[in-house]
Design a protein around this nucleic acid. Sequence first.
DNA 1: GAATAAACTTAACTCGGTTATATTTCCTGC
DNA 2: GCAGGAAATATAACCGAGTTAAGTTTATTC
Lengths: 218, 218
Amino acid sequence: MSENPTGLRERKRQRTYRTISEAAIALFLEKGFAAVSVTEIAEAAQVSKPTLFRYFPSKEDMALYRFADHEDEAARVVAARAGGTAPLDALETHFLTGLAARDPVTGLCDAPEVLAFHRLLYGTPSLVARLHSYTARSEEALAGELAKAGPGHAAPRADLRLTARLAASQIVAVQRVLATENWRRISEGANAESLYAQARADAHHAFALLRSGLAPYA
Amino acid sequence: MSENPTGLRERKRQRTYRTISEAAIALFLEKGFAAVSVTEIAEAAQVSKPTLFRYFPSKEDMALYRFADHEDEAARVVAARAGGTAPLDALETHFLTGLAARDPVTGLCDAPEVLAFHRLLYGTPSLVARLHSYTARSEEALAGELAKAGPGHAAPRADLRLTARLAASQIVAVQRVLATENWRRISEGANAESLYAQARADAHHAFALLRSGLAPYA
DNA sequence: GAATAAACTTAACTCGGTTATATTTCCTGC
DNA sequence: GCAGGAAATATAACCGAGTTAAGTTTATTC
C-alpha cells in the first residue's frame, strides 16, 4: 500500500510531533519565548534541528499548533449547522457553548497553565503575528461557507462573494475582540466563574451588534 | 538646546531614512523580497548594517514604512470630523475620497509601480504579517476615538469601551476587505478607471452593511 | 575652538532556518 | 523472514537577520 494510516511509522510521527511541541511549550512557559533556542528544543525532544523543522515550519508554530487545529472551526460550524439555522445563530450558539465549557479560545479560562500560555502568547509579538495568519485562513474558510449558504430571503442583489467576505471578516474580528476582552479581565485577576455572566452578556451584545449594525455610530 | 528639529543632524537623518527605504524597495521590486539580503541594502544605501537597523526595526519595515504613516489615519479622520457628522459617515466619505484620488491604500490604483509593489506585498507572507500588526495599532487608535465619540442617541447602556472596540475591529476589517478586493481585480488585469464605479458601489454596499448589520446572514 | 554627546563603522557574534550527504528504520513483495 | 526500496533521521556545514562591543567621526553647545 502507498499509505497506511495506522502503521508504526505514522504512530512514531505523531508521537514525535507531540513530544516536540510539548517540550517547546514547556520551555517557553518556563523561560519565555525568546529565551529558548530551537537547539534547546531539539535537545529536549531528542531530535536533530533539521528534523525539528520537518515537523514545524517555524519556531512560532511549535507554540501555536493547537490553534492550527481550530483554523477551520468557524467554517465547520456554519457547514454543520442544522437546516433552517442561520449562520450567525450557529456561530453565536457555538461561542456561548465555548464560554460555558471555559474553552481557552473564548478567553474565558483561568486554569493556571492556560493563563500562563495566554500571557506568553499575547506578550510575544511574533506569536501574535503568526496567530493572525491562522486567523486569515479561518476568515477565508468562513467566507467560503457563507458564500455557499448565501444571504437570507431579504438579501439585495449585491455581489455575493464580496458580501460573504465582508461578513466573514466582521465575524472573525468580533470573536477575536470578545476573546481578548475576556482574557484581559482574567489576566487582571478576575476568575472565570465570576466573569461568566458578563462574558455571556458581552457575547450577546456583540452578536446583536453584528446583526443590527453599527447604526449607533452611523 | 536639547532638541533642534531643523538642525543639520536631523536633516541628515531624514535623508538617510529615505535613502535606505528607497534602495530597499527598489531592490525588493527588482529581485523579490527574499532574494535581497540586508547586507545588499546596506551597501546600496551606503551605510553599515547596524545603522540600517537603527533606522528600521526589521527588514520588513524597510518595505512598509509608508504604511506606518497611515497607522492612525482612521482615528484622525474620526477625530477631525465636522461637528454633527457621524464617525461612520466621516470614514465612508474619506474612503470614497481615496477611491476618487486612486489612493494606493484603497487598492484602486493601477500605476505600474504601485501594482508591482502590491504584488510584492501580498505575495510575501512575512510582509502581510507585519502589515497586520500595523493594522492592529490602527484598530486600537480608532477604538479610542470611537469611545470618545460615543454612540449616538439611541445607544443602549452597554459597555462603551467594548462596543467601541467591536466597532473598530469591524470597520478596519471591512476597509481591508474592500482594498484587497479592489487590488485583486486590478491584479487580474482590470484598470482603475473602469473599476471606479464598481469600487464606489462596493464601498457603499460595505458601509451600508456595517450600518445595518449582517441581518441577511442572521 | 574645545567639550560633549549623538551617530557611525568595523568586526565578531547569536540564532533561526536550510541544504547536502550519509545512515538508519520502516514497509513491501516475494 | 528476508531482499530491495522508500521514508525519516542525523551530522555538519552553511546562509542571512539582527545584535553587541569598542573605537571613531560629526554635529551641537558653550
